[in-house]
Design a protein around this nucleic acid. Structure first.
Lengths: 133, 133
DNA sequence: CTAATTGCAAAAGCTTTGCAGCGCA
DNA sequence: TGCGCTGCAAAGCTTTTGCAATTAG
């Protein structure tokens, strides 16, 4: 379980790390800001400092357990690394984040980089959308 | 010239606005942060406050003269609105920014949003690439 | 002349860091 | 026990805001 994941990541198994990892795994919302994580922990009666949340999330990112996004200006959003790559849609009205997978777009990106004499290392694609009524 | 663009944007023609717009039009680097603009103005002997740079860039954005990007966390990047929409490639080694246009990707994005019941308002696509040798 | 704009400094929001004490291995 | 980790508070950064003075129309 979480215990093992932390060890594999080369991180000491501490209470704050376990709490944060468990929260990320159990939360119904996959995309959380550091502040979100902090508030959820407080609400759950867990006593963890905000600075620790930031430090732990950054460590998780380095360990590959978590991905950091910059969907919106002002604050980062963290998400557990998922098995399959996906991109994101963000609703401009509700800030809801929707994941999607599209192989054509992935292929096109590689093709575009190649056409310019480059190798694709990574990419960031966010669609800002509004619900159709 | 710039004078006219400001009027058309419904903005009073003031010295700071002219200086900033001229700088954006004449700079060899199309992609600048507020701090970049501020420092370039200072270097050019122009006396404009940083707060004014932020305010003016935000007004330019509202007026559609400029586009704000969040390529990296920490600070926004501004670019004069260009006639044709384009996306960006950033070389991970040199930080060089390359613009590209790809209609297929644009169309796919609309299609994906539609398929999920949404209307595409905007998007952000950045390819992080490395020069092939 | 009047209202908009500017510059400064202070404040705001997110994130990082220094340091003393606590806790895992 | 020793080193890493945590919490708190303070500091750092980018960006915004309040306010008096300045400027455009």
């Amino acid at each position: 379980m979480s215990n093992q994941q932390l060890k594999e990541a080369g991180l000491k198994v501490t209470l704050p790390r376990l709490k944060i990892l468990n929260l990320l795994e159990q939360s119904s919302e996959r995309h959380l800001s550091a502040e979100d994580v902090y508030k959820l922990l407080l609400a759950a009666g867990e006593d963890v400092g905000l600075a620790t949340v930031y430090r732990v999330l950054t460590q998780f990112e380095s360990a590959g357990l978590v991905v950091r996004h910059n969907f919106e200006e002002g604050h980062a959003i963290f998400e557990l690394t998922s098995e399959h790559h996906h991109d994101h849609m963000v609703c401009v009205d509700t800030n809801q984040v929707i994941e999607f997978v599209n192989k054509e777009i992935e292929d096109l990106q590689h093709k575009i980089a190649e056409e310019h004499g480059y190798e694709l290392i990574d990419h960031n694609l966010v669609l800002y959308v509004r619900k159709k009524h």
